[in-house]
Design a protein around this nucleic acid. Sequence first.
DNA 1: ATTTTCATGTAAGTCGTTACATGATTCT
DNA 2: AGAATCATGTAACGACTTACATGAAAAT
Lengths: 191, 191
Amino acid sequence: MAQKNLLPLILLGLLRDSKKTGYELKKDFDTEIGEFWSVKHSQIYLELKRLTELGEINAVTGFFGSKVEKTYYEITKFGKERFSKWQCSFQNELAVNKDEFVLKLYFIKDKSDERLGQLLKNQYELHLEKLLHLRQRMKDVFSTIDKDNNYGHYLILNHAIKREEEYTQWLDDSLKYISVGEEKNKREYID
Amino acid sequence: MAQKNLLPLILLGLLRDSKKTGYELKKDFDTEIGEFWSVKHSQIYLELKRLTELGEINAVTGFFGSKVEKTYYEITKFGKERFSKWQCSFQNELAVNKDEFVLKLYFIKDKSDERLGQLLKNQYELHLEKLLHLRQRMKDVFSTIDKDNNYGHYLILNHAIKREEEYTQWLDDSLKYISVGEEKNKREYID
DNA sequence: ATTTTCATGTAAGTCGTTACATGATTCT
DNA sequence: AGAATCATGTAACGACTTACATGAAAAT
């Protein structure tokens, strides 16, 4: 396969607790799990069809009190099995972490390259924003639900925050370090 | 496009300093830049063809003293322009960091779930290995080349190490925390 | 009255992986 | 002599994105 195809597993996971429509699943990617995974609705509907054909979910179409026809998907025994199997499976290697910014930096050779400061600042803004957003999420999420009964979610939010703290710290340190270098260079030229 | 298509930029970047064959470029992904990006050789040759058609690189086929016919690719003015333009461009949002393990954890609800410890341990091993590897890389790389003249590379290796330090630390902390919880539970049951 | 949200899909195209394929050269 | 490396591609397929498409309901 071209990618690791984790979407069906995510969908099964989201359907474990209760049946949902494709639209509701899509909504989960705008909020909840959207913090950790992204996908387009077109792909969701496609994958739901495939999972239905595989017998891992059942599709139930009807009105359900509403005026609009909806299709609810509910997980089957086979779906639960597949999900459980995946959830307790071990990885034997890590995927490469693809980060456009890191790539850009790789090609910056000279320490006194003028673009360096600009790039670091831009990235710092983005990651600081992300960090603040994640801290807010942590507050919001666990004010309504219990930490110990959503422990995985708690752990990964915790990790995401620490990751962004490290990222911003690194960017900030790098910025300071290159400007100290500049100061030093300036003095060397002036003195 | 399906993905952000950064491969052509990487290839242009790798060709800035000197002309290279497709095979040499492929080799770079096994070592150097392979730490930060992965790609298959089939895709490299395809992208080289495309870049040639775009006039961003030139293909020169010949024997060059060797007994085997090779094709060297050299960057053109247009290629340099495209690369420079990308390298100093700003991002306006961050891509979602897709991590299978994080996904798995998201679906662990119960703090005392037995699988939690196993999964954390497995992941700890992988990230510790990665961390040790990166520290070695740092030593190896900058024993032969100069830090200040490969500053981007230095920065991102530095960052990668810090990232893995954070990752292993988080996993270790989480492991400790859940086993303390277990101990506490045990005592509660026993006392 | 108009925009936004709900709700669900199809079609085209691209990036990337996996597998297939070949032939020379160098190392053991 | 055989294995590994050098060197370069093609073909099939899958995952994902972008764009196209539609219609009702709810909100402003």
